[in-house]
Amino acid sequence: MIQHLVDGILVGSILSLGAIGLTMAMHMLRFANFSHAELLSIGAYCALVFDGVFQAVYAPLGNVIGPLSLTWALALAIVISMAITGGSAILIDRLVFTRVRAKGGELSMVFASFGVAMIIRNVLGLIFGLQVLLYSKDIVFAVVLSRDPFLLVKPDQIFSLVAALIIMFVFHLVLSRTTFGYSLRAVAENPELAQVSGINLSRIITLIWIIGGGLAAAAGVFYGLTNQINPVLGRDLLLPIFAATIVGGIGSIYGAALGGFLVGIASNLALLILPSGYSPAMPFLIILAVLIIRPTGLFGEERH
């Protein structure tokens, strides 16, 4: 029971990072972006490449940090990967979404995002192969945190959770303390009024993609670190991330963060009663439950 709860929190932090970016883009551009989870894959593979590059350039970077399997090189690579993934998100927006938006309605963008997801996923498969990859081949043993109740946790999982929480806290500070944060919230509440007050909408949209991409990249690396990397990573995480945004209420950043944890915990607790084969279907049940009980989610607003 307690093991499932802890595992749920660890997975939840990854979902939260993914859901924050998705909910912002969905709220601002008003379309369900089915390619968002592919940014996690891009981030994971990107970090893998730069991890290798840094280790080749300067060998001591290959040393692991403390009890983790994380090397200094990978820690640096995470930062680079966040930047590059943010850049890819902008590139995809410029190449596809902006143009489709100019031509058709919001729903055409949903179609386009499916197509984009398909292309990214399979191009990654072609480049890196369909097999499972790992950041480190060393086996990191899980640490027994307590014997009664029995609780096993890997150091990498603790690192991922703490790092995800720090990233979310920093983002919270940006949102609540900086003028950029104010303008972001202003645009979210009322784009027209925000523009009247001199906020540059297209600049905000660019920043949203950078932040969304960066958070997704971190989530992808943490997932790769605690599980494994494969080209269908994004596909497998897409529905849980969507569920997190719906639990939180589409458009609510804090809702998405909380929603991620709730979905992670609920999916893991469900394994107590259901066989593990059913876990991919769990997010759908959560979505159904939210739609029945409270369609606007935890913090969502009533709007169409």
Partner: peptide
């Protein structure tokens, strides 16, 4: 609800 919900729910029903 907003049209995103139908898109996500139908996608979810296929996975489930």
């Amino acid at each position: 609800l907003r049209h995103d919900y139908l898109a996500i729910a139908t996608f979810g029903v296929a996975v489930a």
